[in-house]
Design a protein around this nucleic acid. Structure first.
Lengths: 362, 362
DNA sequence: GATCATCAATGAATCGTTTCATGCGAGCAA
DNA sequence: TTGCTCGCATGAAACGATTCATTGATGATC
């Protein structure tokens, strides 16, 4: 097979009998070309199968039409929902979303950021692996708009959309305490992830001034398989030391924990209660429907894209904002059993706190 | 904030006191630049925060360093695993993967293909929405390498990697027949998706010459929520008409079916047996661990990327190949109950067929 | 000291677009 | 007829890199 030499705007111009400038006008400002000429050009384009070279366009026009979305894990439904939200907004503005997966690996994150900057994307939505990321700072200094996703920026010099993770951790843990649990484990990591650190912090806050202890099991990542490994450690503990409730930093971990506890003959929620985070679709469909802290995932993506495009389209007027959503605890079977010793009835979840709703779902 | 005028290779050259050609050499062929000069240049690059403009590079060099991966649904773990496999291979060859999500929408698919071709990507891996896709044919005629993913090409003029979906459908349905089921439903759609059509075809084949009927419930997509809707229809049927077993075209559907059946008081597997397809991680973690047809997902992605890069790097020697993997039935609780009337014991799965392994997993 | 090979660095040409100042012809008013 | 405006079309000049023929400097060899 012969690789065909790509046809350029010149070939189209030649075939249509017009100048290259006119072809470009047909492509970009069809209104200012006479209908007869326009038809000649579009015919020529169709006949030659011409496809415009985006590199050349971008080089000259100095402006790309894509934004980058850098996430920790595309296999995590949380992020695919965020992506969906971002795409929805971008689509409406004729902008494409480049989805990049770091797999929580700083080196891959760096590679993706480099690529995005080399491509001169309009801007970047990112959930960074590390709290401190030199590269991001540098990019911003060079004028690249960046919005942090699922992370709060303490600095005022950039936009961020996030969910109050401390509150989320507090909600989950208070609920477990209310259900009569005293030995609670937090499973999650790495703690370099701000989300993880804050959810744990929330758990610690909930315990403040109340009877109960928090055992932290740090994991290297947030996947189902690491969840299984963490549960193995828990299962190995003696019954008197073993926590009676586990709060996981996300649902994937929780699902892994659930599988592995079950394999070891530990029942959820009878022996160990379980609460996850994110409320992904699979949580409700788990062996034991999983209590979880729900975040407005698509909303997060939409808001992030909105903020970014606002900054892109009008950098002068744009004011950096830090948007924080509130999470919501969804109680399901995995944590709905009141701890024995406090009369063993299946209790419904109590409302706690003013701002945060605690809802009971199927 | 002032948007800084992007620094170019000229600025670097000026600061380092060398020519632009030398800077380019440092970037692309550092070995042929004297160490002293090289250091001057790299210092200048660092000092200016220079980031190479990929558009310009690509325009002149005439060659990009990315491949496109177009999938039906990024929220489906099947595809994220395929993506992971493809990325693994691409990474090793210093190539980036652009992940594009069509959401089974032909219009979005078209937009993504246009964008990829405009960007002059090295090639495209795609699971097309329609069996016949003009645009793909056109792209190939223009010399763009394309590999079909999770789909068999009957034509010899292109590469494809797929799994024998007819066999998969046969495995699942034979298993259900062996467990004593006679009224079996197939849930899946749209049938324009080749995978769906073939899995159904396999189901029909399994019934050939055996007692039993196949009820087809066509769905508009392959998500959890459409699965719920399908289950609603099933639940509405009278007990005598209702199928005793359901085979779903993928696991997401099956999980949805499972949730909704349970909500209607129908027990799995006692009232209705259930088999899914893909064996995603969540299948084993479902309320009732889900029997499913397993496909070598990452392998699929790796092989596809391998084929594509082979064609890209040596178009002369490359021979198009159609790789077909064999699926494997994994029997779990959702279908492991032998149908009453044939003595109601929990049976283990029988081995069926020569090539296809039927394994019993936890 | 002349000749030649080797190694580095140079800078102009080029990739395929977009953009914009310029040209041109038709139509219209004076 | 002249002078203007208006509507389209033109084509040369960018954009920022890569590439390659050419030049220059340095040693080595005779």
């Amino acid at each position: 097979m012969v690789t065909v030499q790509a046809t350029s705007i010149r070939d189209v111009a030649a075939l249509a009998g017009v100048s290259v400038g006119t072809v470009s006008n047909v492509l970009n400002r069809p209104a200012m070309v006479a209908p007869v000429t326009r038809d000649k050009v579009t015919d020529a384009i169709a006949q030659l199968g011409f496809v415009r070279n985006e590199s050349a366009r971008q080089l000259r026009a100095g402006r790309s039409r894509t934004i980058g979305l850098v996430v920790l894990d595309v296999a995590n439904p949380f992020f695919t929902d965020v992506a969906r939200g971002a795409e929805e907004i971008a689509d409406a503005k004729d902008t494409m979303v480049l989805l990049c997966n770091t797999g929580e690996d700083p080196r891959r994150e760096l590679r993706h950021l480099e690529m995005l900057e080399q491509q001169r994307v309009l801007g970047v939505l990112i959930t960074p692996v590390d709290t401190k990321n030199q590269r991001i700072e540098a990019m911003m200094r060079r004028g690249m708009p960046v919005v942090l996703v699922d992370r709060r920026s303490n600095r005022r010099n950039r936009c961020s959309v996030g969910v109050d993770d401390v509150l989320g951790g507090r909600l989950a843990t208070s609920h477990l305490l209310d259900m009569g649990h005293r030995r609670i484990a937090f499973v999650g990591g790495p703690t370099t992830l701000q989300q993880v650190a804050e959810r744990r912090e929330g758990a610690a806050q909930a315990l403040h001034g109340r009877a109960g202890s928090l055992l932290t099991i740090e994991t290297p990542s947030l996947s189902i398989s690491t969840g299984r490994k963490a549960a193995e450690q828990i299962a190995k503990l003696s019954a008197t030391k073993r926590p009676t409730a586990v709060f996981c930093a996300n649902d994937l971990l929780a699902l892994g924990v659930l599988q592995e506890l079950t394999r070891h003959g530990l029942r959820v929620p009878q022996d160990i209660a379980l609460v996850g985070y994110d409320d992904i679709d699979f949580a409700a469909a788990a062996v034991v429907p999983l209590s979880s802290v729900r975040q407005p995932r698509e909303q997060l993506g939409r808001t992030a894209a909105d903020l970014l495009l606002e900054e892109v389209n009008d950098p002068q007027r744009h004011k950096h904002r830090q948007v924080v959503f509130e999470p919501e605890l969804v109680v399901r079977e995995s944590s709905s059993l009141r701890r024995s010793g406090l009369r063993g009835s299946t209790g419904t979840a109590p409302r706690r706190g003013a701002a945060a709703a605690v809802s009971l779902a199927d």
